[in-house]
Amino acid sequence: MTNLFASATDSPQPAAAPVAGPGRAVLQLTGIEKVYQTRTIETVALNHVNLTIHQGEFVSVMGPSGCGKSTLLSIMGLLDEPTSGTLELDGRPVQSYSDKELARLRNHKIGFVFQSYHLINDLSVLDNVELPLLYRAGVGGKERRQRAYAALEKVGLGARTGHFPSQLSGGQRQRVAIARALAGEPEIILADEPTGNLDSVMGEEIMDLLLTLNREQGTTIVMVTHDEQQALKTQRLIRFFDGSQVS
């Protein structure tokens, strides 16, 4: 497993990353604002958000529906651009990056877990997990297979590699999604209500898996959740209301 992480830092980086140290700021949001403009109304999704995520942290984000949590996650995941403000990843502002460079950063540094899993139904479990490596230059088919398999082992689904998503339960599907996020060996995992579609037992399982990842491998995790119990298990809890951070 340490081996896996060694290769992550060895892999080509788009920018010369500073030497990793504990407590280093991985994501730094300064004055982030996001406004959605339609013909008639202007909706402020994020209002001057200042936030720092440190390496190795497990942060949970809570707030009522429509308070801008998902928008925040999209911006942190480089999927969406803020209307104003700066986002620094590993100490470097990302505004100046092209679409191609952003895609590379997402591929190397960030892993996503979604509420509705977003697995490709027509691909087997193994093929789904291989997906992030497919967009990474210099990773051969054999290595892809090995790494995807290792990631599936880690989430306890080593025996289900040939199944298709429709043959799995909700909890299993989410574990596949987590394995997919792990396969790319990212520094940060962004999880958007990962247990939202699951019953409490399965939700507990997924939560345990994420906690173990954070504890044993030091993966930085930002998780949006509605579940107070789960949020309390994380190191830091951020509350949002109407686009602003309230705690």
Binding site: I120, L131, R136
Partner: peptide, 15 residues
């Protein structure tokens, strides 16, 4: 959602 997912996992628009 497959397209969105692929973009999230590191595919560019050109990809």
């Amino acid at each position: 959602d497959e397209i969105g997912l692929r973009r999230a996992l590191g595919a560019t628009a050109t990809d």
